[in-house]
Simulated scan of single mutants.
Amino acid sequence: MALVALAPLAWMASASFMAPGEAGALPPPLLPAHPTLAHYRTLFARAGMGRYLLNSFAIASASTLLSLACNLMAGYAFAKLRFRGRERLFRALLGALVIPAQVAMLPLFLLLKYAGLVNTYAGVVAPALATVFGIFLVRQYARGIPDELLEAARIDGAGEARIFVQIVLPLLRPIIVTLAVFTFLTAWNDFLWPLIVLTGQEHYTLPIALASLSREHAQDTELMMAGSVVTVVPVLVLFLLLQRHYLQGLMLGSLKG
């Protein structure tokens, strides 16, 4: 089953090095007869793939950092700080999970339009500042932090900000890595929301650029495969490097919940 799942990715990488028209032969060749980098040179020289790659990296990185800041503080507050209406508010947030994200896109787009954020990177990043899933994930993990540890720090005179930065964040390290990887992958692969918000081609991300490329070069299979490789490889490498921490954070979070 693993081979079946990886076969399309392997052929995608192989086809990206084939000569023009070679991938359309019947039966399709598994390996290029004469490997070439011409399609990658075309992507970065004429299709502007380098600009789109930087756009995707900037948006995904900003979304990840800002989302971590908001979700970590909110999740910790719901887990350990006592305030009026905490449980009711958290249940209301969980109820929002059943609402499809597409339903909120129109009012969200109108809000961003009134704020002047359409066709800006900030307009793409804004919806990722805080997510119900991220808050829930951090809350479930933070509930396992001993209350005695926090109370001891308060008795010693530490403020809430210092407790959060020096005590809580180091204990949340596994879930921080998990949430960072999840948020980065989501922002990198997002297609629908950037397509709605970004109207200028110079702001396009890789998924939008790849879709635009498919309309212009529908018959150029090898060029499309090269574009797909450029889109997939960065996040694939990131996930492979951090997969152990990512899975560890998910498992620990589920056990602590």
Results as ranks from 00 to 15, higher is better:
90 F>G: 04
99 I>N: 01
175 I>A: 02
23 A>R: 11
255 L>H: 03
234 P>E: 03
195 L>N: 14
197 V>W: 10
109 F>T: 06
125 V>I: 15
8 P>G: 13
64 T>N: 05
129 L>E: 02
31 L>F: 15
98 V>K: 00
16 S>Y: 07
229 V>N: 01
217 H>T: 11
16 S>T: 08
35 P>R: 13
117 L>A: 10
9 L>E: 00
237 V>H: 03
200 G>E: 14
126 A>Q: 12
143 R>A: 12
15 A>I: 02
140 Q>H: 13
42 T>F: 15
29 P>W: 11
191 F>S: 00
49 M>C: 00
218 A>C: 06
170 P>T: 12
206 L>D: 08
42 T>M: 15
250 L>E: 05
56 S>M: 14
234 P>A: 00
229 V>T: 11
187 A>G: 13
195 L>M: 14
115 A>I: 02
229 V>Q: 04
129 L>G: 04
44 F>P: 03
3 L>F: 15
251 M>C: 00
58 A>T: 11
245 H>Y: 14
202 E>D: 11
183 T>N: 06
135 I>T: 14
247 L>S: 02
120 T>N: 05
65 L>M: 12
24 G>H: 13
214 S>E: 15
198 L>G: 04
51 R>H: 06
170 P>F: 10
70 C>F: 15
29 P>A: 11
120 T>M: 07
12 M>D: 05
95 G>P: 02
37 L>R: 08
123 G>F: 05
19 A>S: 14
159 G>F: 06
74 A>I: 08
231 T>Q: 10
127 P>A: 11
123 G>C: 07
73 M>L: 15
185 L>F: 09
138 V>C: 10
145 I>K: 04
233 V>A: 15
250 L>T: 04
163 I>S: 04
39 H>R: 12
229 V>D: 01
42 T>P: 02
71 N>S: 14
190 D>Q: 13
5 A>N: 09
234 P>C: 07
1 M>K: 09
170 P>W: 05
216 E>Y: 14
165 V>P: 02
22 E>F: 10
179 L>Y: 08
127 P>C: 09
